[in-house]
Amino acid sequence: MLIASLKPRTMGGTTNTGLLAYALARAGHPVTCYDADESLQLAAWARDAGDFPCEVHEADTPAFAEVVYPEMNHDRINVVDAGHAENHPDIVDSILEVVDLVLLTLSPTNPDYERLTKPERGTPLAKVIKRSAALRESGQPPTTNVLLNRCQ
């Protein structure tokens, strides 16, 4: 299974990704993480934690579907931190092509909702997810759930 953590330009997405992976691993699930955010904050976060129970691979490439995904152990839970989608649409498009589940971190504020639906610049993330259907074998966008959360 591949779970993508997406977010519009908001705070807390990488933290949520790390905490999700940590909780799944501590619950006994085999988990591998992929940091597809060009800032590579998840990789740094895991390295600095010292006891992070998952391996984190740097995967900030627009060829995620062609290069990273085929090499994954698909018997594990794989979690990818996709970064700010509007800043890296080529990476996000490639992830959406192969992901099983999208967790969309969204702060419960009107400005962050507007970043999702009608950002000042860039393509709305809701539209990016919807258009990924054309790239997917199923012809459908991935299942997407919104996590209303604000991490500081």
Rank of each mutant, 00 (worst) to 15 (best):
M1D: 10
M1C: 03
I3A: 03
T10H: 01
T10W: 03
M11A: 14
T14I: 00
T15D: 07
T15I: 13
N16C: 11
T17D: 00
T17W: 00
L20F: 13
L20P: 08
G28P: 11
V31N: 08
V31A: 04
T32Y: 02
T32A: 10
D37A: 00
S39F: 00
L42D: 05
A44G: 04
D48R: 05
D51Q: 14
F52I: 03
F52L: 08
F52E: 03
C54M: 06
H57C: 02
E58T: 09
P62Y: 04
A63E: 13
F64R: 06
V68N: 01
Y69T: 08
Y69H: 15
M72R: 01
M72P: 05
N73V: 08
D75F: 05
R76F: 14
I77P: 02
N78C: 11
N78A: 09
V79K: 03
V80G: 01
V80K: 01
V80D: 00
A82V: 03
G83T: 01
G83S: 02
E86T: 10
H88L: 03
H88I: 00
D93Q: 10
S94T: 05
V98D: 08
D100T: 12
D100F: 09
L103W: 05
L104R: 04
T105C: 07
T105L: 03
L106H: 05
N110T: 13
P111W: 03
D112H: 04
Y113F: 14
R115H: 13
R115A: 15
L116F: 12
T117Q: 09
E120F: 10
G122L: 11
P124W: 13
L125R: 10
K127L: 14
V128T: 15
R131A: 15
R131I: 06
A133K: 07
A133T: 09
G139V: 12
P141F: 06
P141N: 07
P142H: 06
T143I: 13
T144V: 04
N145A: 09
N145T: 04
V146H: 02
V146D: 07
R150L: 14
C151T: 12
C151H: 11
C151P: 01
